[in-house]
Nucleic acid binder design. Sequence first.
DNA 1: AAAAAATCCAACCGCCTCCTC
DNA 2: GGAGGAGGCGGTTGGATTTTT
Length: 337
Amino acid sequence: MGRSPCCDKVGLKKGPWSPEEDEKLLDYIQQHGHGSWRALPSKAGLERCGKSCRLRWTNYLRPDIKRGHISLQEEQTIIQLHALLGNRWSTIASHLPKRTDNEIKNYWNTHLKKRLIKMGIDPTTHRPNNLALTCGESKDSANLSHLAQWESARLEAEARLVHETKPIMLNPHHYYQLPSTTPPPPPPPDQPCLDVFKVLAWTNPGEDISTVILNGLLPPIPILNSSDNTLPIPTLGLCNGNLSITDINSIETSGACTTGKPNNNLFYDDHQHVVKGMMENSEYSNDARIDPFHPTYVADSLSFPSFMEDLTDLQPSSISTADDVCWGVVEEDKIYY
DNA sequence: AAAAAATCCAACCGCCTCCTC
DNA sequence: GGAGGAGGCGGTTGGATTTTT
């Protein structure tokens, strides 16, 4: 298959676009549509190759694109999706309305990637760099098992992505904003609900939050408050406040946040408030209710590690509840955060 | 104030997939 | 089935801008 000649081989212009060129391209497409990109330049009176025109249109001139400031919510989405999909920028972009893959890619490379590295997190794997050092050998097999589960979920989600035509809407109130006392109002009817990927909460009021070892599949990388570099952690019991950026390095993963059939393993009170929940560590790949876009984790207790050790054999009945913990609203087999 | 270094990001390159014939 | 063209995608570049020395 022969390659089409590139711009320099046929003497076409390269480099930055002038306002006049932009205007020509814009005018032409507005009047005729782009049609064949290869044929467009000559028709529009541009000394550019079709590919260059397409790129200019797609990444800059298109009227339905938003440029500039990336919001915190968008950052969260990018990181979540990157953790799941890797460098599949076009797929990631499809879930960020009006953003182009090029912009997201640039933003990742210039901002987010560096930020994660600073946090001691591998931007490729989204796992702490010191994972190998902090995980004991006895935990290795469990790690592998859970990583396999993670990969399974990842692949499944990818398959869904490929087949789904509708973009997945992220709940702007979701991440790290679990209510401590009052459940949030149910989402509007047209808002897609969140299937549960990871639900995990534990309380032990009064413990020092900075010493927590979070034994779980590495959650999607937390977004720091841009103002003070802190990670918002929802208030649970007497534990509250923010986990500072330096504490993130102490997070240790061994794969504990799992999924399963939601209602079987959630704990909720008469008011339909989840007081403590964890998905069953089984039937991971059989249960289609996995939505890795919406994982949630909460960690706030020194009791967490010992609790996690027996995780794989954990039965729902063995988890006690804490009356003062409340997060999420259960509706049928879904949870709204 | 000037030079050097760092950062940003638009645009390009080349590979890949899809579609048509 | 496969050849070839068109468009899409991700990696990379390099010029412009900003920050630091």
